[in-house]
Each structure stands twice: as structure tokens, then as C-alpha cells.
């Protein structure tokens, strides 16, 4: 009984000590780099972080999503060290970024017009930019109007600050911030968008090219000159596919040694495997 009592007291003390020492445990970790933002850039960065950690075990790197808008804001507010973005910052965001931050491009990517597999099977092989714009403006509501089956179109829009949304809206709707009154749903990350399209037979959405798969297919674009182009790496490289963008990082110019060394790694050819593995185009 006495022993039990003592054990109990000891346990209590250990727990108390752990709680009191909690802040120090964090400071003991040698250096931590936090990254957040675009869900398009995320897989590249988590790959890179893994590779980097193998050679630099003393650096802890955490990577989380949230979208380009979130990434830009988080880095401005000092919540993370590196913000990932798949679009250029807006003017208002540039004002806040001011001279203290820099934008580092790491790769290029195409935004594909993604549709459910059944849509392709029903005979819709390509769409012009005007047709896509009409779908998002609510003027075309049925797949039969663009050569497909007689099914209503499930139009998926994205949260307004998402990088993919900006690039898509800029090219297709003419303004990065344009409204899309034809939309029937709003989605967030690439993952969420892809899973909604997978579950539907009649969906259209916007998705980074690297996230397409057998169920979620990119539709080829019919250009004004009559050519059709798919969102493939070659067409991004030669510039013929219009909906493309840079994937970038935003980081403070004034940075710690650990952060600087990681950034140097990201700008070196060592990043290329991570980029290619995830289906994006390295800059060179």
C-alpha cells in the first residue's frame, strides 16, 4: 500500500515535470523549418524534405497544405518559414510581402481541365476555351451541348484564393478573380477536387496536370487555330498549352542558416527528381 502510494506520487511528479519541461523540449530540437500552402506544390516539397533530412538529420521539416492563399498569408504572418504557391501573389499580397520576401520558382505545371471518365467515353473529346468559359458561366449546362451524353454538368469551382483557380480563371474567364455563376460546388485541395470528380460521372473541374489518373482525365483544348493540345509536359514546354503556371516558394530574404541551407538545396539540381517524380516540369 505504501509502495503504491509512493509509486503514485512519483508518477505524478514525472507527469508534472514533463509538463513543465515541455517548452524546453521544443527548443532542444536543433532547427525546424515549417512549410505550408499550395496542395499542388506539396508533394514535391515533402519529397524534397525527406531527401534533405537523410543528409541533414538535425533539421526537422514539416509540410502542410491549405492552398496558395493560405501559404502566402502564413509566410507573411510569420506562421511558417516557407510558403508554397502555385500562382503569382496578387497586388494586395505583394504590398504585404514588400521587400522582405522573395519568390523562388521551382517548377512549371499545367492546369488541366479535368472531367469524369464517363464524359470522355460519351464522346466529348475536346473543348474550346469559350465552351469551358460558358460552362463556368452557366450558359452551357448539359454535356449534350458540347457533343456528349444527355446529362447535366457538375461544374466544380475552387476556393477563390487557390492557385489553380487563379490560373484557370485568368486564362479561361479572362480575370483571375472572375465569378463562376455556373458552378455547382466549391472544392479545396487537388485531392478533394479529384475525389469529387472520381465519384461523379458528369463532372468538370480544374486540376494540376500531375493529379490526373484513369478516372479523372484531362480534356484536350481546342485552340482558335483549330489545333488541339493536351496538358502534357511537351505542350507546357513549347508554350502551346495556355493554362500553365510556375510553382513557387515564398521565403523571407533574411533567413537562418538552416533555412538558407535548405533553400540552397531546393535551388540545386538535387530537387529535379522530386519534381519529375510528381509529374511536374523542372525549370531547365
Amino acid at each position: 500500500m505504501v509502495f503504491g502510494c509512493r509509486l503514485y506520487r512519483m508518477l505524478n511528479r514525472i507527469i508534472l515535470a514533463c509538463i513543465l519541461l515541455l517548452p524546453f523540449q521544443f527548443s532542444l530540437a536543433e532547427s525546424t523549418i515549417s512549410i505550408a500552402g499550395s496542395s499542388t506544390v506539396l508533394p514535391v516539397m515533402s519529397d524534397a524534405a525527406q531527401t534533405y533530412k537523410n543528409d541533414n538529420p538535425s533539421t526537422n521539416i514539416t509540410v502542410s497544405g491549405g492552398g496558395s492563399g493560405t501559404g502566402i498569408n502564413a509566410v507573411i504572418n510569420g506562421i511558417v518559414d516557407i510558403g508554397m504557391t502555385s500562382r503569382q501573389p496578387t497586388e494586395a499580397e505583394w504590398v504585404k510581402l514588400s521587400e522582405k520576401f522573395e519568390l523562388i520558382d521551382i517548377a512549371r505545371d499545367a492546369v488541366a481541365i479535368a472531367v469524369s471518365k464517363a464524359v470522355i467515353k460519351s464522346g466529348v473529346s475536346s473543348l474550346s476555351l469559350e465552351q469551358i468559359a460558358d460552362i463556368y458561366r452557366g450558359k452551357i449546362k448539359n454535356w449534350k451541348d458540347v457533343g456528349g451524353f444527355d446529362e447535366e454538368i457538375l461544374v466544380i469551382d475552387k476556393e477563390p484564393s487557390r492557385g489553380t483557380r487563379h490560373v484557370f480563371a485568368e486564362v479561361v474567364l479572362g480575370d483571375a478573380k472572375a465569378r463562376a455563376p455556373g458552378a455547382s460546388l466549391i472544392s479545396g485541395s487537388n485531392n478533394e477536387e479529384r475525389s469529387i470528380i472520381t465519384r461523379s460521372n458528369q463532372a468538370i473541374g480544374m486540376l494540376s496536370h500531375a493529379w490526373l489518373n484513369d478516372d479523372v482525365r484531362g480534356i484536350t483544348l481546342k485552340l482558335d487555330n483549330g489545333d488541339t493540345v493536351s496538358a502534357s509536359p511537351e505542350h507546357v514546354l513549347d508554350g502551346s498549352y495556355p493554362i500553365q503556371r510556375s510553382l513557387s516558394l515564398i521565403v523571407a530574404k533574411n533567413r537562418s542558416e538552416a533555412l538558407q541551407s535548405f533553400i540552397a538545396f531546393l535551388q540545386s539540381p538535387a530537387l529535379v527528381p522530386s519534381i519529375e517524380k510528381n509529374g511536374y516540369l523542372p525549370l531547365n
Binding site: 491549405g66 492552398g67 492563399g69 493560405t70 498569408n73 502564413a74 507573411i76 504572418n77 494586395a92 499580397e93 504585404k96 476556393e159 477563390p160 484564393s161 455547382s184 460546388l185 466549391i186 479545396g188
Partner: peptide, 21 residues
């Protein structure tokens, strides 16, 4: 019809709104 609730709006947009905007 799909719609929005107060909570879903805050959940979707809070991360991307810059403090003070």
C-alpha cells in the same frame, strides 16, 4: 441544392484571409 453554412464558410476561408484585411 448545395449551399453554405456560416461554419463552412469560416472553415474554408479563414486560412486564406490575411490578418487585418
Amino acid at each position: 441544392a448545395p449551399a453554405q453554412t456560416i461554419t463552412s464558410r469560416i472553415g474554408r476561408e479563414m486560412g486564406e484571409a490575411s490578418v487585418g484585411s
